[in-house]
Design a protein around this nucleic acid. Sequence first.
DNA 1: CGTCATGGTGTGAAGGCTCGAAATA
DNA 2: ATATTTCGAGCCTTCACACCATGAC
Length: 426
Amino acid sequence: MSSCLSGGGRAAYTIDLDIIKSPSTSTRTSHSSSPSSTISESSNSPLAISTRKPRTPRKRPNQTYNEAAALLSTAYPNIFSAKDICKPGKFIKPREYSSFSFEETSGELLLPFPVEKPVFHIDSTVYGKSYSNDMDEIGCQTNSSNLSDGYEDFDAESILDEEIGEGAIDSIMGDMSECVEGESTTCSDGGVGPVNFCYGYPVGLGLGLGLGLGGRFDFGFGLMRGGVAKAFRQSDEGDWWRFPAVDVGEISPRFNKPLPAEKKKKLDKLNTKPSSSTPKKDISVSIPKSSSALSKENSSSSPKSSSTSSGKENSAPNPKPIPGVLLKLNYDEVLNAWSNRGSPFSDDGSELSGSDALARLAQIDLFGESGALREASVQRYKEKRRTRFFSKKIRYQVRKVNADQRPRMKGRFVRRPNSSGSEEIK
DNA sequence: CGTCATGGTGTGAAGGCTCGAAATA
DNA sequence: ATATTTCGAGCCTTCACACCATGAC
């Protein structure tokens, strides 16, 4: 009996204990890349010994499917009915997943909720090309041709490995250029396009979150005024799959005072510039005209809007002190004091229109995008990464010396042989 | 007086790798 | 019927962490 104990890895010390009756009947050819150590393969010996326990029979693909279906039907009988526990017709190879449809298979397990057929149209000006995903074929499937075009060159590993990577930095800090600049770019989370980082959250991944979890995700921390509005405008076209979501417009305080005719016209012109459609679900964006005008509007806002805390605080005729509010302002006096000074947003004292104020605000460089602040933070990041210290730092050298001199048993500290404590124990 | 740091080893978890049965061409 | 491919089960390697007694803080 000659056992082949040579070979790499565990094969070097594997001893077969199984008694193989007829090795000659084995039709299996050994792998050339991995030399087998089993006696049956190395020789024609009728006796082979193996310590391995016998393999459990491999589950068939359909068996796995049926088991999962049975589990789901047990756990959620209302959602996953047991009557449809059947094999999906034919075993589908992974590469075929991209082309099979839920309607043809028992997709009830995957999409228990009624699926409409929205079509997402992403503004081509945002991603450079149009990514209209046809969700008709598969619930979560994206149109492979469109999507793959955008992701084809995306290499996550290179992003991780690349030291600098503007993208890497931006994934941590957020790409200001994408989010802050205003209407020209957007941070729409509903987009299915190239990874568009927005304060560390890739928007492309937002598809999975946004669609899978059924929410409208706003990662812009209030800085994506254009992005949110655009996303909601897009959602109106796609009906947003009837996802349960809170309409921001409903919970936002409204300024119901009608604007003057010419200003309203100007404002409408501004709002309709990016998109000609006037969606019914569009978020209500209030553009601050000026501080005085805003304060006046706040003071005369509707009861609904004044129900908010800010509305209560801003309401001038409220003489009662609000507990917890430390700053008390008499708005009448403030307004009177500012009445002859014009708007604080304007230098010449003239009142700014909404669009003018918006343009003025857009010029404010909050994050120093083009300045040295960003450059400095990137440099700090690089330097910190370069000088990382992975080895253990000894804070107290005395303790290390003592620990080295301390007796051990299997790595654990043990009592000294001459210590009184050990004597007492023994 | 209580807390904490100190290092070598055991142990479990996690992930990678290999093999072989089942499916497919 | 045979060759090839697929992929799940099992094995192996790597890693993180707890454990221990003692003395400094």
